[in-house]
Design a protein around this nucleic acid. Structure first.
Lengths: 142, 142
DNA sequence: ATAATTAAGGATAAATTTGTCCTTAATTTA
DNA sequence: TAAATTAAGGACAAATTTATCCTTAATTAT
């Protein structure tokens, strides 16, 4: 469904949302271990998510690290996909046709469309906070 | 969702199902043009689908080409995904977790599961012939 | 037999994705 | 101010995916 990079981005964001705040930040080591991802590659991904402080924030130096603001935690999960430029799957044709649409549908269009709608809705309605909460309250893992 | 190779495989299979039979075969050129795919790459993919005559069949020499048997046309679309070894998306965790399951779920598991079920069901219930028919009867394109 | 046609298969190349390593910059603490 | 810590960023490497080209094998028609 998504690239490895996006999978790591999703896991990292949920992890950071759950475990960090402006007052208590997380280091790269901690994050990579927490979500079982390659450290250096994860660093690149965090950079991407930090660009413009859109999803996650960071500070350098001792006591520094990555964290999420309350506002950022309220973003829909889809914001992570957008930041990773990996949200095209929510719209594109399952057969890879550029011009597939309601007006000019591929033979799978009608049936696949209903699934895509649900998928898109899931990523738009769920916030990052929602998933962090789920980690806390239910017995979920990353 | 799927690799380019799988997208071409799906399109090629539907095209061949619609336009060929044991009596009337299709050449590589015709297929690549028909589904708007790179010719040489498509040749590789057709080879993969022809391996063991599982999805499509072929004969060499003048008058030869690719075609599908009636039996092959009755296969579920998922058979194409399997042949391309690209059906893992129908089962895998959206966060890329190896051990995500009902017993050990990730924070998206429950909601994503219902979508995956529908997706899998779609590919299992639709036959290649169904899609070829859709091309004929409705105004669909590839 | 020979030539023509068509898919099969191997080698290779280009592009993208995944991943690592090292240096630089920013910040804090001593 | 100096040392320590931590993210940022650049260069590079490995792996995978996408794609092309050329030769070989099979089949048909002349």
């Amino acid at each position: 469904m998504f690239s490895k990079a996006t999978e790591y981005a999703l896991r990292a964001s949920i992890f950071i949302a759950q475990k960090s705040s402006e007052e208590s930040k997380l280091g790269l080591d901690e994050i990579a271990k927490g979500i079982n991802s390659p450290k250096s590659f994860t660093a690149k991904i965090l950079q991407q998510l930090t660009a413009g402080n859109k999803i996650i924030s960071s500070t350098r130096g001792p006591g520094g690290g990555f964290f999420m603001t309350k506002n950022a935690k309220m973003l829909p999960v889809k914001a992570i996909l957008s930041a990773m430029e990996d949200d095209d799957v929510l719209d594109k044709c399952v057969l890879g046709l550029k011009k597939c649409s309601d007006i000019k549908p591929c033979p799978m269009h009608n049936q696949y469309k209903t699934i895509k709608v649900q998928l898109k809705n899931l990523f738009l309605s769920k916030t990052i906070q929602d998933l962090a909460d789920e980690m806390e309250t239910s017995d979920r893992y990353l």
